[in-house]
């Protein structure tokens, strides 16, 4: 079976995010008020061939832990959905 996968990574809670804080500091100068707690992450999209959704999820979790994120500073969330048949 073919699955659509989306992985989002972001700095872990408590880890400073220099990119997020730089963006946040620049917002008022650009006229945007009331925006707080900016955190910048990455989004990955890809396809996985696996026997079932659980197997696909397990594979993606492994890829996340060993490669897509640095667990020292990043968290990730994984969304796996069955790819629509063409």
């Amino acid at each position: 079976m073919r699955f659509d996968v989306q992985v989002e990574t972001r700095p872990r809670a408590g880890i400073a995010d220099p990119e997020g804080s730089t963006i946040e500091r620049s917002l008022p100068a650009l006229g945007f008020e009331g925006i707080q707690d900016v955190r910048v992450g990455k989004s990955f999209r890809f396809h996985v061939e696996a026997d079932d959704e659980a197997a696909a999820h397990a594979l993606v979790e492994d890829v996340c832990a060993r490669f897509l994120t640095n667990p020292v500073i990043e968290d990730s969330s994984i969304t796996v959905t069955e790819a629509s048949t063409v």
Binding site: I15, A16, P18, E19, N70, V72, I73
Partner: peptide, 17 residues
């Protein structure tokens, strides 16, 4: 070396980018 787990911690973008 940090990515390989041979040293603790990680290196992020510099403060102020």
């Amino acid at each position: 070396l940090t990515e390989a787990g041979m040293l603790p911690g990680a290196l992020q973008k510099n403060a102020g980018l």
